[in-house]
Simulated assay, not measured.
Amino acid sequence: MQLLGIAQEPALLPAPTSEDQVSPKTAAALRAAMTRLFEGRPQRTDGCLTKENLYKEAQVSRATMNRVPAILDQRATVLYAHVSGLLRDTGSDRDVTDRATVLRTEVTVAGLVWLIPLLETAVAFHHAVRGAHDDLAATMDRLREATGNGDFAYYVDITAAMGDLPQPAETAVQWLDDAQSVRERWRALVIARRDHLRSTQ
């Protein structure tokens, strides 16, 4: 599937491995289906990159699809790459927030919720660079919700530092260096990105 307007190279598709517990014909059908979804050429589905669409596109059962782990791992890799694309365009006018909204839906539908904290941190970096304080606050609220179980809680501290906001009072994060030095380094990234964008205008 061509997510967010970024084309996927066929070479990204995993090659057959000894782990594939299906026939070569079935594995080939799944890989062909994944390629069609990546490239926006679905034949039997709406084209969204989901498990359900993958097995329907390949005309196999869900159980059969689950026996080909390399195919499923590829889905996470592609979505992760799109989050990286947001970081690449931080502070620019390249529809970062709109792309993030679409990507947030794709990640949720795909069941890869562990990517949400990273996605929200990338969006927070964008808002910090642009000085969009209200948008940054809204992003931090989503990030707190996504890390409420304690996993990836350090992203909240990182986001506060990037936005030059007070350290969260409830934080339990312990850094290897002192907290102030860590905060200054994250804030310096924002300042460096602003300087870079000014120099390229």
Rank of each mutant, 00 (worst) to 15 (best):
L4D: 09
A7N: 13
Q8W: 10
E9Y: 11
A11W: 07
P14K: 00
P14R: 02
P16Y: 01
T17W: 00
Q21W: 06
P24A: 08
P24Y: 00
T26I: 04
T26D: 00
A33Y: 00
A33K: 00
G40I: 06
L49E: 03
T50R: 08
K51W: 07
E52V: 12
E57N: 04
V60I: 06
T64G: 00
P69L: 01
P69T: 01
D73T: 11
A76G: 12
T77F: 10
V78K: 05
V78G: 07
Y80W: 13
A81N: 12
G85D: 09
G85K: 08
L87W: 11
T90Q: 06
R94E: 14
T101L: 15
T101D: 12
L103A: 05
R104E: 14
V109S: 13
G111M: 05
L112F: 10
L115M: 10
L119W: 01
A124S: 08
R130W: 04
R130S: 06
G131H: 03
H133K: 15
D134I: 09
D134C: 08
R142I: 07
R142M: 10
L143C: 04
R144F: 03
T147S: 08
G148C: 09
N149W: 02
N149K: 06
A153M: 08
V156Y: 02
T159M: 09
L165S: 08
T171L: 09
W175N: 10
D178K: 04
S181C: 09
A192R: 11
R194F: 03
R198W: 09
S199Y: 05
T200L: 14
T200H: 11
